[in-house]
Computed example of a mutant assay.
Amino acid sequence: MTTNPFIETTQAQNSQLHSNGKWKKALAWVSIVCGPLTLAFSLIDGRTSMVLIGLAAGTAISLPGAWFLIHELRVKANPSNPPKSRWGIVAICSIVLLVSSGFIATSVETPTTETPASDGQTSASPQPLEIPTTAGSVGTKPKLITVEGHVGEVHGAFCDSPEDYDCAINFIIRDLERVTECKSYDRLVSANLVKISGIVSVPEGGHPNGVDSTYWPGFVSWSTVGDDGVDRPTDIFGECLPENGIRGAWPQSLFPGDSKEFTQYMEVPETAKTLRLTDTVTQSGRWEFALDGDH
């Protein structure tokens, strides 16, 4: 039987057109989805300029895909006399919207010229944080001064006169002993521990040098040192917090006039010889308390 080459060619062309139509439709849906996503990301940013950029760019991305699907429906509705595609107008609209979004972005990124501060006014630019200290005090920077700690004696940070303890923060370690167990609610927990208690306080009215003592207890860290000289970090033993919870432990806010007691357990190695308290942030000092022998 003789085949008709014209029919075979027409079928092949129709198959190719159908395949191309699938790809075009897929691309159209991709552009329709990407447009709203662009707008959504700009809405998350929240700034008016970014929302305008997202609206313009998102519309420019979605417009060709949306028009393609609309035009397909128009052709199916009137296949004998298909309407014009108007792709030139759609392309111009998309380009204008993209250029507009770029123009808005450029305007946002252009830095504004700052006017110099007038007499009696200060610049709004941020200033570096400074911890004021007095020469010769425990808190002198940049050298981190190590102080030998003693149970029952007053120790201070950021001191004008260490002898008179005219300091921004004062603390006394009243009790420091090794124990092998602590009470957790109604049960005993066994571990290699150090029980430490005392008082930490800030003078009424704060320190004349303006030292902010509010978060100082949170700046310091606890560690132990053995005969090998290695510093090993430790922390409050969480299973045996005091009855009033974490507020009774060392890390707590200190405002001018505050005087707070604390009792806490620290888990330490058996080989530890020294309990070390170090201010690693403001470098106001380091205090070392012997764990064995005289304090």
Rank of each mutant, 00 (worst) to 15 (best):
A40P: 10
A40W: 14
F41L: 06
F41I: 11
F41N: 11
F41M: 03
S42E: 02
L43E: 14
L43V: 15
L43Q: 15
L43C: 15
L43M: 15
I44Y: 13
I44E: 09
I44C: 07
I44L: 12
D45C: 04
D45E: 11
D45T: 05
G46Q: 12
G46C: 13
R47D: 06
R47C: 08
R47V: 01
T48V: 14
T48N: 10
S49K: 04
S49Y: 06
S49H: 00
S49F: 08
S49N: 01
M50F: 08
M50S: 12
M50Q: 15
M50I: 08
M50A: 14
V51M: 12
V51F: 11
V51K: 09
V51D: 01
V51I: 15
L52W: 12
L52I: 14
I53K: 01
I53Q: 00
I53A: 04
G54F: 11
G54R: 07
G54E: 00
L55G: 06
L55K: 02
L55D: 10
A56N: 03
A57M: 14
G58I: 11
G58L: 06
G58K: 03
G58M: 01
T59D: 03
T59I: 12
T59V: 08
T59W: 00
T59R: 05
T59C: 02
A60M: 06
A60I: 05
A60L: 07
A60D: 01
I61K: 07
I61R: 08
I61P: 10
I61L: 12
S62I: 05
S62G: 07
S62C: 13
S62R: 00
S62F: 12
S62A: 15
L63G: 06
L63P: 02
L63C: 00
L63I: 09
L63W: 01
L63A: 00
L63N: 03
P64K: 09
P64N: 03
P64A: 07
P64I: 08
P64S: 12
P64R: 08
P64L: 04
P64T: 09
A66Q: 04
A66E: 11
A66G: 08
A66T: 15
W67V: 02
W67P: 11
F68T: 05
F68H: 11
F68Y: 09
L69P: 11
L69H: 09
L69D: 14
I70E: 03
I70R: 02
H71F: 10
H71D: 06
H71I: 00
H71Q: 06
H71A: 01
E72D: 08
E72P: 01
E72A: 05
L73A: 15
L73I: 13
L73Q: 14
L73F: 05
R74L: 06
R74D: 05
V75I: 15
V75D: 04
V75R: 11
K76W: 13
K76M: 05
K76H: 13
